[in-house]
Design a protein around this nucleic acid. Structure first.
Length: 219
DNA sequence: ATGCATGAGTG
DNA sequence: ACTCATGCATA
């Protein structure tokens, strides 16, 4: 769908969607907005001005700086409340927000460290903000209920571990060709004696990692 | 905190 | 077969 990587680093007004739409609609996979337009150059001052001029809201919610600031405030207050990342994830379900279920410790951690995609950050912010407000309100009221522990089975998984030498090779391949064809992947897999799927997923994750937020270009 | 994995959505 | 949001297991 995108084939080559974006070719519009300049904010030269390509069809940019001011989307700030519906955050979350159900427990899982629906935070899909319109991310498919190489928005990476979307925070050009000229464009921000254009958006403001267009009468559209000052999209302060999509401003990386605002997100960064919120993430830090969030973490600070969370710790102040003596709540762990895992606790927050669980608590989200009790918040009973329309279509918002629990999240994992991983996701909360990534939100705090800004290692989620821009869109993902935007979608999660209002939810975590709601939790924070509610949590602080309850803390003030000394509200506390010793809920049931609930013994979770914790279904076990097995994670493949790619050894250092193989990993170095993969990184070398990635540097030259981040998007190898299926055949190339098979060849690499064979050469490194890894399952083809393991190699394919490794490349997918590598690409995703490369695209994550973290004060990339403009911070 | 992060690596590898899954699955929905998309084209 | 890819992208994206997310998660389990682990370092």
């Amino acid at each position: 769908m995108d084939g080559i990587d974006m070719l519009d680093p300049s904010g030269s007004m390509t069809t940019l969607t001011p989307m700030a739409e519906t955050p979350i609609t159900s427990s899982h996979h629906q935070l899909h907005g319109s991310y498919h337009n190489g928005f990476l150059g979307a925070h050009h001052p000229a464009m921000a001005a254009a958006v403001a001029a267009a009468g559209l809201h000052p999209d302060t919610d999509t401003d990386p700086r605002e997100l960064e600031a919120f993430a830090e405030r969030f973490k600070q207050r969370r710790i102040k409340l003596g709540v762990t990342q895992a606790d927050v994830g669980k608590a989200l379900a009790n918040l009973k927000l329309p279509g918002v279920g629990a999240l994992s410790q991983s996701t909360i951690c990534r939100f705090e460290s800004l290692t989620l995609s821009h869109n993902n950050m935007i979608a999660l912010k209002p939810i975590l903000q709601a939790w924070l407000e509610e949590a602080e309100a309850q803390a003030k009221n000394k509200r506390r209920d010793p809920d049931a522990p609930s013994v979770l089975p914790a279904g076990e998984k097995k994670r493949t571990s790619i050894a250092a030498p193989e990993k170095r090779s993969l990184e070398a391949y990635f540097a030259v060709q981040p998007r190898p064809s299926g055949e190339k992947i098979a060849a690499i897999a064979e050469k490194l004696d890894l399952k083809k799927n393991v190699v394919r997923v490794w490349f997918c994750n590598q690409r995703q990692k490369q695209k994550r937020m973290k004060f990339a270009a403009q911070h």
